[in-house]
C-alpha cells in the first residue's frame, strides 16, 4: 500500500488539487473565486496528464525519460535516447490555450455583470 502511494504520488496530488478547484468552483459565491477554482482544476488536469506521460526505465537516473528534444539524431533513430511521451505534452499545450481563452472570457463577463448588478456575489445577483 505504501509502495502504491509513493509510486502514484503525482496522481494523488493531482486529485487533491482537482477537489480543491471543484470546491472553489461550486461552493464559493464570488465569481472571481469561481474562476480561480476553475483554473486550479485545469492545472490539476495538466499535472495528471504530464505525470501520465512520464517514463522511467529502471532505477538508474541515466535511463529516466528526458524532455522530448532530440540531441543526437542517430541515437534517437535507434531508440537509445530515452525521451518521455510527447503526446500528453502536446495535448496540454492545446488545453492551456483553451484555459486562457475561457479565463479571459469569464473575466470579461464578470466585469459586465459587476457593472450591471453592482456585486460579484452570485447569491445577491438572483434577488
Amino acid at each position: 500500500m505504501f509502495n502504491k502511494i509513493t509510486g502514484n504520488i503525482d496522481f494523488i496530488f493531482a486529485i487533491i488539487l482537482f477537489c480543491i478547484g471543484l470546491y472553489g468552483l461550486t461552493v464559493k459565491k464570488n465569481l472571481i473565486k469561481k474562476l480561480i477554482g476553475l483554473n486550479i482544476m485545469e492545472t490539476s488536469v495538466y499535472l495528471f496528464f504530464i505525470a501520465l506521460g512520464d517514463v522511467r526505465l529502471g532505477a538508474n537516473i541515466q535511463y529516466w525519460g528526458r524532455t522530448p528534444i532530440v540531441l543526437d539524431t542517430v541515437k534517437a533513430r535507434a531508440g537509445i535516447e530515452f525521451m518521455v511521451n510527447p503526446v500528453p505534452t502536446g495535448l496540454i499545450l492545446t488545453a492551456i490555450v483553451v484555459s486562457v481563452s475561457i479565463t479571459a472570457l469569464g473575466l470579461a463577463l464578470s466585469v459586465k455583470l459587476y457593472e450591471h448588478y453592482g456585486t460579484l456575489d452570485t447569491s445577491k445577483m438572483k434577488k
Binding site: I15, I16, A51, V55
Partner: peptide, 23 residues
C-alpha cells in the same frame, strides 16, 4: 470525493512505467 478518486488512481500503474500501452 477526494478519497474515492484517490482509491481509483491507486489502481493505475505507477508514474513512469514504460509498459503503459500509450508509451
Amino acid at each position: 470525493l477526494c478519497f474515492a478518486m484517490i482509491l481509483v488512481v491507486l489502481r493505475l500503474s505507477p508514474v513512469g512505467d514504460p509498459r503503459l500501452p500509450s508509451y
